[in-house]
Computed example of a mutant assay.
Amino acid sequence: MNVTWKPLPRLQTSLGTEYQTTAEGPRRLEAEEDNEGYLLGERTSRFLTLTLRQLVVLSPRISLQAYVQVFSGYGRYDRFYAARAAPGDILRLSSLSPITLEEDPSFNLTELRARAVLRWEYALGSTLFVVYTRTQSATPRAEGEPVRLTLLPRGLPGGPHSDSLLVKFGYMW
Results as ranks from 00 to 15, higher is better:
100 T>Y: 01
100 T>V: 13
100 T>Q: 13
100 T>D: 07
101 L>R: 15
101 L>I: 04
101 L>A: 09
101 L>H: 03
102 E>H: 10
102 E>T: 13
102 E>Y: 06
102 E>V: 09
102 E>W: 00
102 E>G: 05
102 E>P: 00
102 E>I: 02
103 E>A: 12
103 E>G: 05
103 E>I: 11
103 E>V: 08
104 D>N: 08
104 D>M: 12
104 D>Q: 11
104 D>A: 14
104 D>I: 09
105 P>T: 02
105 P>E: 09
105 P>Q: 10
105 P>V: 12
106 S>W: 15
106 S>V: 10
106 S>E: 11
106 S>D: 06
106 S>C: 12
106 S>M: 15
106 S>L: 11
107 F>W: 11
107 F>N: 14
107 F>S: 14
108 N>I: 00
108 N>S: 15
108 N>E: 10
108 N>P: 06
108 N>C: 13
109 L>T: 09
109 L>A: 08
109 L>K: 09
109 L>D: 14
109 L>G: 10
109 L>S: 13
109 L>Y: 14
109 L>V: 12
109 L>N: 14
110 T>F: 12
110 T>W: 11
110 T>Q: 15
111 E>V: 04
111 E>C: 08
111 E>N: 15
111 E>M: 13
111 E>H: 08
112 L>C: 08
112 L>H: 02
112 L>G: 04
112 L>M: 12
112 L>Q: 09
112 L>D: 05
112 L>K: 06
112 L>Y: 00
113 R>I: 03
113 R>K: 15
113 R>Y: 12
113 R>T: 06
113 R>G: 02
114 A>L: 03
114 A>D: 09
114 A>H: 05
114 A>R: 07
114 A>M: 12
115 R>D: 08
115 R>T: 01
116 A>V: 10
116 A>S: 15
116 A>T: 09
117 V>W: 06
117 V>H: 04
117 V>A: 08
118 L>F: 13
118 L>W: 15
118 L>I: 02
118 L>S: 06
118 L>G: 06
119 R>K: 07
119 R>V: 00
119 R>D: 05
119 R>G: 03
119 R>N: 02
119 R>T: 05
120 W>M: 01
120 W>R: 00
121 E>I: 04
121 E>N: 05
121 E>Q: 09
121 E>S: 09
121 E>D: 08
122 Y>H: 03
122 Y>K: 00
122 Y>T: 02
122 Y>R: 03
122 Y>C: 01
122 Y>L: 01
123 A>P: 00
123 A>G: 06
123 A>Q: 08
124 L>K: 04
124 L>S: 11
125 G>Y: 14
125 G>M: 14
125 G>T: 03
125 G>E: 07
125 G>Q: 06
125 G>F: 15
125 G>N: 13
125 G>D: 04
126 S>F: 14
126 S>I: 06
126 S>C: 03
126 S>P: 12
126 S>H: 10
126 S>D: 07
126 S>A: 01
126 S>T: 07
126 S>L: 05
127 T>A: 09
127 T>Y: 07
127 T>G: 07
127 T>D: 02
127 T>H: 04
128 L>A: 13
128 L>K: 09
128 L>D: 03
128 L>R: 03
128 L>Y: 02
129 F>V: 00
129 F>A: 01
129 F>T: 09
129 F>Y: 11
130 V>L: 15
130 V>N: 01
130 V>D: 01
130 V>K: 03
130 V>C: 01
130 V>W: 04
131 V>M: 04
131 V>I: 11
131 V>C: 04
131 V>A: 07
131 V>D: 10
